[in-house]
Computed example of a mutant assay.
Amino acid sequence: MHPLFNYINEYAIISEEDFKVFLSHFTQKKITKKQYLLKEGEICKHMAFIIKGSMRKYYIDEKGIEHIVNLYMENWWAGDRESFVRSTPSVYNIEACGNCELLLISRENTLKLRDQCRPFNELLLKLDEQNTIATQKRITSTISYTAEKRYADFVECYPHFIQRFPQHLIASYLGITKDTLSRVRKKMLGK
């Protein structure tokens, strides 16, 4: 069965017939490693469901330092939600970390599906809830936790990311240096 069908059925029940209608609102796209789904200054016109591959979302601060905001892989949604909803230029870049197969949905088709498809509304509600919880945890972690606790929580929540993303991207996501992450990992392995 299609990966998106399986994904939706984790959150809401959708029939195979309804899924065909649902899927007709998406377009397929392949991008290669280092290619961008979105560049800073562009308007995010599509949200992407990742069928295959991995991506990173980052911004570059005024000092030229790159900060990882999100890491994505199969069965994750990628995009800049603010830019997508408000049609404003994005402050983020979303780049493929490997070759990716994506399903893209436009804002217009998202609104159509919201009106036409109850399982899509259920999916959106559950994704919003999860996103809010994850954002709160990330903020608390960033402002309150030690590097060791941040990494331990990251490993617990996203164990599959450890093998998929280079250490410098994980360090940036955690808001620590690569050297600090190396020390933390050695310390944890020593326990």
Rank of each mutant, 00 (worst) to 15 (best):
M1C: 03
P3V: 02
P3S: 14
L4A: 08
N6H: 08
N6P: 01
I8C: 07
I8H: 08
N9R: 14
Y11N: 12
S15L: 00
S15V: 09
S15Q: 13
E16I: 08
E16A: 14
K20L: 02
F22Q: 10
F22N: 12
H25V: 13
T27C: 07
T27G: 02
K29T: 00
K29G: 10
K29P: 09
K33H: 09
K34W: 07
K34G: 09
L38G: 14
K39G: 07
E40S: 14
G41E: 08
A48P: 10
I50G: 00
I50A: 02
K52M: 05
S54H: 01
K57W: 03
Y58A: 02
Y59T: 07
I60H: 14
E62K: 13
G64F: 03
E66H: 08
E66W: 00
H67K: 02
I68V: 12
I68K: 11
V69N: 04
V69H: 10
Y72L: 01
Y72W: 04
E74K: 13
E74N: 14
A78Q: 15
G79H: 08
S83T: 13
S83W: 06
P89G: 05
S90R: 07
N93D: 08
I94C: 08
I94R: 15
C97G: 12
N99E: 15
N99H: 05
N99Y: 02
L102N: 14
N109T: 10
K112F: 03
R114Q: 09
F120E: 04
F120P: 11
N121Y: 03
N121K: 00
E122G: 11
E122W: 05
L123K: 09
D128M: 08
Q130K: 15
T132M: 05
T132W: 05
A134D: 12
Q136D: 07
I139N: 01
I143P: 11
T146S: 15
A147C: 06
E148L: 13
E148Q: 15
A152Q: 14
F154T: 12
V155P: 12
V155N: 11
E156A: 03
E156N: 11
F161C: 00
Q163Y: 04
P166Q: 04
Q167N: 09
L169S: 05
Y173F: 13
T177D: 05
T177Y: 00
D179H: 04
T180N: 01
T180K: 10
L181V: 13
V184A: 01
R185M: 13
K186Q: 09
G190M: 06
G190Q: 02
K191N: 06
